[in-house]
């Protein structure tokens, strides 16, 4: 069972409209959208079945700070879009680094707000208000951390002349654009 043709010579003879990386990422993003669809529909069902929302005695969510934080995340998304468009390697990596820093700021502020809310008595075990909040926001934070890791890896690859910026943009774009929807649903409405 020796090698018929060495892997180095396996030609990618086909010209394809979307790269493997973008396609694979796209498939994952579709799955993740359905995952958040499940969480959001659970949220809507539980909220509709609740007599008051937020229930009496539960703390209000930090609308203003999180709104500002939303802008930070959107700016981070813009940076990746920028990196994708930039012609020079240096401006690409610089834009990616800015996106990574802004991404960390977003997740960090979210974390601090979480801790403050726990201090105010918002508990995951205290009913569906707290439970849905922590689950939805936490799930988004996990996806954001995954996205930051992807940006870090991509920025290293870009410096080596490889790496798939469109795939990173696709995934980070998903994380960035999903957040305003969740913010509106959970914090505003």
């Amino acid at each position: 069972m020796s090698s018929v043709v060495p892997p180095a010579a396996w030609s990618g003879a086909r010209r394809v409209p979307v790269s493997n990386a973008v396609l694979g990422t796209g498939v994952y993003v579709a799955t993740a959208i359905m995952f958040f669809g499940g969480l959001v529909s659970a949220y809507l069902v539980l909220r509709a079945g609740s007599p008051a929302w937020p229930p009496a005695g539960q703390p209000r969510l930090p609308v203003a700070i999180t709104g500002a934080n939303t802008l930070v995340l959107l700016a981070s998304g813009l940076c990746v879009w920028w990196a994708r468009r930039a012609a020079q390697l240096q401006s690409r990596t610089r834009a990616l680094h800015a996106a990574i820093v802004l991404g960390f700021v977003f997740v960090g502020v979210q974390g601090i707000e979480w801790i403050r809310l726990v201090g105010y008595g918002l508990r995951a075990s205290g009913g569906s208000y707290g439970a849905t909040f922590y689950t939805i926001v936490g799930a988004h934070a996990v996806h954001a951390l995954g996205g930051i890791a992807m940006l870090v890896v991509t920025s290293r690859f870009v410096r080596a002349g490889r790496g798939d910026l469109p795939a990173a943009l696709l995934y980070w774009g998903f994380v960035v654009l999903l957040w305003p929807v969740l913010y509106a649903l959970v914090y505003l409405v």
Partner: peptide, 27 residues
Amino acid sequence: GPLISGAVMLLLDRNLGSGFFDPAKGG
């Protein structure tokens, strides 16, 4: 995706007492 979200909620119900599926907690 929706089942994974359900499994996450079930795991939280079991281990944190979140009560997504528990009528006593509004689930």
